[in-house]
Structures are given as C-alpha cells and as structure tokens.
C-alpha cells in the first residue's frame, strides 16, 4: 500500500524539518529584541512553528477515502 508508505515518509520529513526549525542555528535567528504585533519575536516564532507542525501533522494524517476500507494499516517497520 504505497499511499500509507508515502504518509509515513511525509511524517518523518516533517519531524526532521521541525527538529531543525526548533534548534540551533535556525532558532538563534529568532532570538532578537524585536516585536511582531507587540509580541517578542522569539516567542512568536516558537508558537508559530508549533502551530504549523500541529496543522501539518493533522492534515497529513487526515483520513483518506481509501477504497480498501477502514482496515487499520499495519504498524510501521514491517
């Protein structure tokens, strides 16, 4: 089932991207004394990335209309 494999790959890619975005050195770019809409950039950046991760993972795992029915996919690593 290539679609579920593709989904797993997307999740891993998202994980790597999120790990990079939330650590040095990318994170250090947000550590400046400025504000976005009155909120310090560092806090704004962290919560913005966080919200993005949640949105992206929700969309990735959204139940697709699979013709093979509601049978759960086998766990990864098989």
């Amino acid at each position: 089932m290539p679609e579920s494999k593709r989904r797993n790959e997307r999740l891993v890619a998202l994980f790597v991207a999120a790990l990079l975005a939330l650590n040095f050195p990318l994170l250090s770019l947000a550590s400046v004394m400025k504000q976005v809409w009155g909120i310090p950039v560092l806090y704004f950046y962290l919560f913005f990335v966080w919200a993005f991760i949640i949105l992206a993972s929700g969309l990735t795992l959204k139940r697709t209309r699979d013709p093979s029915g509601p049978a759960p996919e086998p766990p990864a690593g098989t």
């Binding site: 989904r7 891993v12 999120a18 690593g77």
Partner: peptide, 17 residues
Amino acid sequence: YLGPTLAALLWWLVLRK
C-alpha cells in the same frame, strides 16, 4: 512541550507498532 510535539510526529510509525 516541544519535545512531545516532535515525538508525536513519529507516533503513527513507532507508537502503533
């Protein structure tokens, strides 16, 4: 709290197993 958010991305693969 960011750590669990990251880990949750791998739940579909690891946790289900």
